[in-house]
Amino acid sequence: MSIDTTPKMNWWNRLAHPGQFVQWTRPLIWPLVALTALLFAAGLYFAFFNSPADYQMGDTVRIMYVHVPTAWLSQFVYGTMAVSALGTLVWRHPMADVSMKAAAPLGAAFTAMALFTGSLWGRPTWGTFWEWDGRMTSTLILLFIYLGIVALWRAFDDQLKAARIVAIFTLVGAVNVPIIKFSVDWWSTLHQPASVFTADGPRMPGSILTPLFVMFFAFTFLFITLQLVAMHTEVKRRRVMTLERKAARGDAS
């Protein structure tokens, strides 16, 4: 009788191996693509053909179905990066900095879309495209933080060193997320206060909440899909860098 002395690896350790992570998550991509496409089709149908105009804002309420999900993602993606930053600094998980790097440009894009749709919604409802109030200014700062993080990643050849510096920068920048969230409560602002996730429940009728939630999940699954593909690409990019260094050493010797 032989005794198996191979150390047992849990799923956390297995996920730490970039090759295994790619192998395990690759089959998820196409189902995620299909689910995201279905959710967008349903969301757009509800947004344009099966939801009423608002009694105050009229049809401009339809901008909410793209503005709120992109604004939600601007903060959710940053939350993902902050958790990944902890993963890099505390657990030294090899996939944490891959996740952090893959998420930054996606977060920047969703934040830019939130600002763009917000300003197009603001003009007919408030009479202005832009106001330097707490919510809008802190969201603009979030965009600059994302762009700074993308630039920081590109500034280093050594990606492990970059990961530690970006992780610290990301965690410091995370202080802006609660500021965005509570800015409408702390300061006088044109922006409306929270109206979906409140202690008393949503302050909207179901006919408007339905397209909002469907689009919310559509954008969230879009992010998850793009994030997975971008993480796979980042794993391959690091393999490219390793092979190029090997080739350069071979040429030199």
Partner: peptide, 10 residues
């Protein structure tokens, strides 16, 4: 135009 602009931008 604002609604169409927002959706086209996104």
């Amino acid at each position: 135009e604002f609604i169409i602009g927002a959706y086209c931008g996104v």
